[in-house]
Every structure is written in C-alpha cells, then in structure tokens.
Amino acid sequence: MRLVVQIPCLNEEDTLPLVLESIPKEIPGIDDIIVLIVDDGCSDRTVEVARSYGVTEFVHHARNQGLGRSFRDGVVRALELGADIVVNTDGDNQYPQDRITDLVQPIVRGEADIVIADRQVHKVDHFSPLKKQLQKVGSGVVNRAAGTKLPDAASGFRAYSRESLMVLNTITRFSYCMETIIQAGNKNMKIASIPVETNAKTRESRLFKSMPEHIAKSAAAIIRSFMMYRPYVIFAWLTMFFGVLGMIPFVRYAVLMVTDSASGHIQSLLLGSLLMILAFMSLMLGIIADLIRTNRILIEDNLEHTKKARFGKSGTELLRDQTSQPHFDWPREHPGLPTRPVS
C-alpha cells in the first residue's frame, strides 16, 4: 500500500525541516511512503530545502493559487503516483507528523474513507476564547450540512483513501476543508476522527487577514457546498417562509372586509400578492436547482470514471502485479540451452 504525504507550502523554508524530519519513515500496513511538496508560488528556498531532505516529488505554481487549488493539484499528482492513501498536512509544523501513523490506520483497516485529526481546539493555547467558540460553531454548522458528527471540521490534518478522492471534487480556492466534508457526508462516506495535540505556533495564518474575513469566506464555502447537494432544502424553506408571510395580509384583508364597513385596504392585497409571487419564484428556483443538482450527479459519475481511467492502478495493485509475475531464470530452468534466447 502506497502513502503520499502532501505538504502545501508558501515560503516555509524555516519550518519545513521540522515537518520533514518528523514524518514517519515506516508505518504498519504501508509499504511505500512518498513526500510531495506543493510549491504554491514560493519565493524563498522552500524547494531547495525540500530537495536537501531527499524530496523528489513536486507540484509547482508560478503564482500563489490558494490552499484549495494546492490541495486539488497535489491530489492529482498523488493519484498519478499510485497513492492508496493521501495525507494532507501543513508546512508550518502546526500538526504532529508522528501521528500520521495513527491517522492512516482506520483507512488501512478499511474502517473509514476519510480520517480527520481533532485538534482539541479547547486545549490550543494560542487560540483566543472567541476563536475557540467560532471553531465550535463552525464545526456544528458543517456537521448539520453534512450529516456528520466531527469535533473539528476545520482541521487540515487529514487522510483520504484513493476511492474517496476519486469521487470528491473541490472547486473553492479558499479552503477545501469544509467543502470536502460536506461532499463526503452527502455521498455517504465514512468519516472518522482521532484526537491530536498541535505543536506550538510558528507563524500567523496566511489564509485570512482578519477574523471577519475568515468567517465570511468560511460561511460562503459552507453555503455553496451545501447548495450543490441539497438546494431544495433552502428553496423549500424560502417557499414556506414567503408563502406563510404572504397569507397574513390576505387574512387581514378578509377580516377587515368583514368587520370594517369602510372599503379599501388595497395595501394588504398588494403586499400579500408580492409575497406570494416571491414564494412561487422560490418554488420554481428550487425545482431548477434540483434539476441542476441531478445533472451535477451525472457529471460527477463521469468524472469518477475518467479519473479511474486516467490514474490507472493504485500502488497496491502495482506491487501485487510485480510480485505475481513469474520469475524466469533461463540458464537454471534450461541448463542445456544457451544462456540467452536466440532470435
């Protein structure tokens, strides 16, 4: 079984040695470990440092493309290398690389498709109380959208099976963490979690400049991912909301016409009509969105078949083919014949 550990990097020459030195060299159930560096537009010596530690596999971006694109490109290269499991970690040494051994075991045993490390945010000293609470709320929202029960949905330290990567398709540039969980949950994949303790903080996050920006981008990624797979839920609620709200002016108009001798009250009819039109539009948009969702499912099925055809055999299958090929020792098996076949 082949494991590829991919490390997205943006100017990590100072911390990358700590990451590379702590990656396990041997893991039970894993026959081959490959380290893959995703150079996301580095302008320092990150690539040279990686080469000095024996890394030979790279994905290069001429300009910074963001974490989401780096993850996607790294996965493509890992699958090309025949990865059976892909572990994603960070170049800033936030995560304990020695726990990769524990991270991949549920996949090795066939018990999970994806394994996500729980950073136990409440124990992280450099997280402010506000950030800890926001992380908890964010994980709760993602779990509601995905139908999962993960304590730390924002953790980037995670392992993916080859089969899960064949069906996951990331589109966001900001961060793939929330998106892949919502996709996996709606595709009925088994997601496991293991607790880890993070390393000391080495630098500030480069994903966002402020907490409001982080909240806005995370919320946008969650809503977009949720609407891809369950748009009818949102539009059904909008239809009910505008429909019920629109009935109130009509009821008011009817009551006033019975109890009030004065004519008029046309405002109630106008407001009620407007709200009912909005309810009807929400219903129509929900139907259209659901048809688009159906079309997306068909496209993703085609993408899955395309990936399997493109990436060929996994590392396990390649190793099996190598060991199953019969060994032909010409001189020993045919001592009376020449040591080399005659053409």
Rank of each mutant, 00 (worst) to 15 (best):
A216Q: 08
Q133D: 13
E204G: 15
A192S: 09
R109N: 11
L207E: 06
K123T: 14
S161E: 05
E197T: 15
N188D: 13
K149P: 00
I223D: 05
A220C: 02
L134N: 06
A112C: 06
A219W: 06
K209D: 11
Q105P: 06
L130A: 11
S193L: 02
I171N: 15
Q105K: 11
M166P: 00
F174P: 03
K201D: 07
L130V: 14
N188E: 14
E213V: 12
A146K: 09
K136N: 13
S205L: 10
P129N: 10
D152P: 00
Q183F: 01
K132P: 11
T148N: 04
V142M: 10
S128V: 07
A184S: 09
G140K: 05
M189C: 02
N188L: 13
A192K: 06
Y176E: 08
T202K: 10
H122C: 10
Q105V: 06
Q183A: 03
K136L: 13
K187H: 11
A221Q: 04
A216Y: 04
E179Q: 13
K136S: 12
L207K: 12
L168D: 01
T170N: 08
Y160P: 02
G147F: 08
P195D: 06
A192C: 00
T180F: 05
A153Y: 07
R158W: 00
A154W: 02
I223V: 15
M178V: 10
H214E: 08
K217G: 00
N188K: 15
R173S: 10
E111Q: 14
G140T: 08
A153W: 07
H214M: 09
K149E: 15
L165Y: 06
H214I: 00
A159Q: 07
S164Y: 09
V121Y: 07
L103V: 07
A219F: 10
G138D: 04
H126D: 14
E213P: 13
L134V: 03
K209G: 13
M211F: 15
A220T: 01
S210W: 03
P106C: 08
D125L: 05
R203E: 12
T148W: 01
A216R: 06
D113Q: 11
K209L: 12
P106M: 04
L207T: 14
R173T: 14
I191Y: 02
V142G: 05
A159K: 04
S175A: 14
A220L: 07
T180R: 08
S175T: 14
A220H: 04
L130S: 10
M166A: 11
H126I: 09
G110Y: 12
V104Y: 03
S205R: 13
S128K: 03
K123D: 14
P106D: 04
K201Y: 10
V137P: 00
I182W: 01
L130M: 07
G110N: 09
I223N: 08
T202E: 06
M178G: 01
